[in-house]
Design a protein around this nucleic acid. Structure first.
Length: 314
DNA sequence: AATCTATCCAACCGCTCAACT
DNA sequence: CAGTTGAGCGGTTGGATAGAT
């Protein structure tokens, strides 16, 4: 059940070195197997909630907060462990571009993943890239870099790993995501209707948005995706602005049809690489050059080491 | 083999908000 | 309406570990 070893008890500073014999003092630091067992068994019998009371009644010398965190982030049976799949990474990038650091909101769309885990992923992987490129991780420039290099690469990986279910309904390559309700590592992420990664665009957008869309979006009239038009990355700057005005998706995830809203495909055609140049993106030319030349060599984009050759082959 | 450095991630903290009294 | 409490969120910390030197 728990992989915590009691040997790691000294990992974090405890509130007192002698709390074992001072029953009024709260314990801090890593959880022991014994504590995990107490918490799990108590919740199995009485359920979650009333965390402060729970902590007392379960005989845990922990704050309710600590118990809640331990349960939600580690002990809860449906918590998924292991590396994030490319699909999950893609979704995180996508949702973060829309919602910012709303980790819990983002986590709601990645079943089994906790906000803490997603936050850690963002800080350790994504922000690392931004630091390396000397750009602000929340800047439009970095958003464009993500759209320009990172997301297409993830899409390629997804496509590469799901050869059996490519959509034939669109000229752009796309990947249908599994409807299996459980997300299993190394299998496609699935989205139930309840877990929509983004809202279906309303038929009628606010005027200022539809105005912008009219002028800025590549409507891709060939597309069968209806209102989920494929958006050219040429307009990424404008798309970002639009996203601030509404929740209109700029996402590569699209429902297959209005009648099959619980099944999604990933539209890699949303990222028109040919049109991505410093002139069309908000990425400063110097940064663009860094990305395109050397700075990303050997960097880990998620679970893989990417070579420059790979990047340039996009 | 020893030391250094970078990375990961569990856990903590402070804050906000909603529900209740 | 004000105070209290519980719950949840995002930011930060720091020990463990892996990899590099």
């Amino acid at each position: 059940m728990s992989s915590v070893s009691s040997s790691s008890l000294s990992k974090k500073s405890l509130s007192s070195s002698s709390d074992d014999d001072s029953s009024d003092k709260l314990r801090r630091g890593p959880w022991t197997l014994e504590e995990d067992n107490l918490l799990v068994h108590y919740i199995a019998r009485h359920g979650e909630g009333r965390w402060n009371l729970l902590a007392k009644c379960a005989g845990l010398r922990r704050t309710g907060k600590s118990c809640r965190l331990r349960w939600l982030n580690y002990l809860k049976p449906d918590v998924k462990r292991g590396n994030l799949t490319p699909q999950e990474q893609l979704l995180i990038l996508d949702l973060h571009s829309k919602w910012g650091n709303r980790w819990s909101k983002i986590a709601q769309h990645l079943p089994g993943r906790t906000d803490n885990e997603i936050k850690n992923y963002w800080r350790t992987r994504v922000q690392k890239q931004a630091r390396h490129l000397k750009v602000d991780a929340n800047s439009t420039a970095f958003q464009d870099i993500i759209k320009c290099f990172w997301i297409p690469r993830l899409l390629q990986k997804i496509e590469g790993s799901s050869t059996s279910c490519s959509s034939t309904s669109t000229s752009s390559s796309s990947t249908i995501l599994s409807q299996n309700p459980t997300v299993v590592s190394d299998q496609p992420v699935n989205y139930s209707a309840h877990d929509l990664p983004f809202p279906i665009p309303p038929p009628q957008l606010p005027q200022e948005v539809s105005g912008n869309l009219q002028g800025n979006l590549d409507h891709n009239s060939d597309s069968e995706h209806g209102s989920n038009s494929c958006i050219s990355s040429t307009e990424s700057m404008n798309i970002s602005q639009i996203s601030q005005l509404s929740e209109y998706p700029t996402s590569p995830f699209h429902p297959i049809s209005t009648f099959q809203k619980d099944c999604y495909y990933v539209d890699s055609g949303c990222y028109n690489m040919e049109s991505m140049t410093p002139a069309t993106l908000s990425v400063p030319a110097g940064v663009f050059q860094n990305v395109a030349e050397s700075n990303w060599v050997g960097y880990d984009f998620g679970d893989n080491i990417w070579s420059m050759d790979e990047l340039m082959a996009i």
